[in-house]
Nucleic acid binder design. Structure first.
Lengths: 251, 251
DNA sequence: AAGCATAGTGACCGCCGTTAGCTAACAGTG
DNA sequence: CACTGTTAGCTAACGGCGGTCACTATGCTT
């Protein structure tokens, strides 16, 4: 399908790739300016001085295009997280996790529409019965894994460097244990299953906190969710045994 | 606006109320059958043997109609939760919270489209600059508060009956403390601010867990999220000092 | 019976995603 | 060079959408 046989870049291929990239960046801009509902093929094409059907030379459908935009956004977000991790000082996994988590919330709150596309209900896809669920091979799913890997790797590093309390494998529900085993087996470093559980638990809290804030589900109690987020971060730090590394957010 | 002066129900009023109700239930059915994207005024009207403009006699816009559907769904979900609370045995707050949480997850996983409408990114509304943000008076917001109240009340009951560890008021960040104070003041029963914090923290975990499962964000690690949910429930029970009341899910 | 408010209709607007068929420019081969 | 195949982008069109408007017909009120 996408096998360039031998010659990797003809003149045309480069132009084509450029246009495809321009379409995706334009789509991203339209998404920001018009919201997810305004992310229309015609709007994208208009912005580029092109007509809508022309886009079909590059993407199979609107859904396909959105899929690629989602992958781009995951990549961008991951870059932001990695940058935050890189500038954490001191460069310990605990402080890095703190920085990455804050960068995640910051990106989410300043990129409302994009966050909704990545983490809200819009992105979900009902897989057709006949369709093979090669869900994991979709570009957005792959980019999503890279994104999650940033958090997973930091938690793993914390565990390997200094450890934290982890449920014993025997205490885990068998159904959960088997799934964790399968997942941990795919990781580059062998880890106790309990670490996988703690990571998931922490990630759920972080995701839940940021999602609720961005989607407005905390407004019933909080006008400004930041102090609550910081409190949760501290709690997460305690669960991971890095409470001592907590430092209040830079102002 | 909606002041019936004196005469509460004329013949016409009843018919009108009936039609409005039928529209909402039909909308709900279309939502389930066609998904949130297929929730079109024309589809609803078609299903009722009516034309789309007729719906505007009952609702200002599609958004207005969706708003009322959301309120209906919140009400239905709340009824389900209250029923689960009512049949918890023994009828202690701890066991009731367990039952309500499971009912919440069950409703979410069996009512995918509806859950997405309530808790996903679709429902969020950008408030116009000029528009007064009487956000709290919207019917869906009111129904949402009733829903959240089920959980809040149970956590409060647990605290009042047997207590659980709660951060000291002085240990809370001032910004968070002030907001919690304001929120707790609106509750019918005076409670320490720390209870508000613990409730929010627990609710975030529950919401995060269910949201991630329903929106497919746990599939990278788990095929079946139920055992993870149960593990989180147990952890929540520990945080609330009712770990002893945990009982495995009925099979 | 007369008058009137109202539920519902059909025609229409401008938008949407998507398809089909066309043209013009391009790349590669003799 | 001409010739051939490929491809980017166009226009036109289809059906469906949310929403508005003028209109009819029904049934309540006086």
């Amino acid at each position: 399908m996408a096998e360039p046989t031998d010659r990797p870049v003809s003149r045309r291929d480069r132009a084509r790739a450029d246009t495809a990239r321009e379409i995706r960046t334009t789509a991203r801009r339209v998404l920001v300016e018009q919201g997810v509902d305004g992310l229309a093929l015609r709007a994208i094409a208009r912005e580029m001085g092109i007509t809508a059907p022309g886009l079909y030379r590059y993407f199979d459908s609107r859904e396909d295009l959105v899929e690629h935009v989602v992958a781009d956004l995951y990549d961008e977000l991951t870059d932001v997280l990695e940058a935050a991790r890189g500038s954490a000082d001191p460069a310990t996994p605990g402080v890095q996790l703190l920085a990455v988590s804050r960068a995640f919330r910051r990106w989410a709150t300043t990129h409302h529409a994009e966050f909704g596309l990545l983490f809200g209900s819009a992105g979900e896809r009902v897989l057709e019965p006949g369709e093979p669920q090669r869900d994991g091979e979709r570009p957005s799913a792959m980019a999503g894994r890279r994104f999650g890997g940033v958090f997973a790797e930091l938690v793993a590093r914390i565990y390997l460097q200094q450890g934290f309390p982890v449920p014993d494998e025997a205490d885990l529900d068998p159904g959960l244990r088997d799934q964790l085993r399968e997942w941990c087996a795919r990781l580059p470093v062998p880890l106790p299953l309990g670490v996988g559980y703690v990571f998931l638990s922490c990630w759920i809290r972080l995701y839940g906190m940021v999602c609720m804030e961005v989607f407005g589900h905390l407004r019933f109690a909080l006008d400004d969710a930041e102090p609550m987020f910081e409190a949760e971060l501290r709690a997460l730090g305690e669960a991971l045994g890095v409470a001592g590394e907590y430092q209040p957010p830079a102002r």
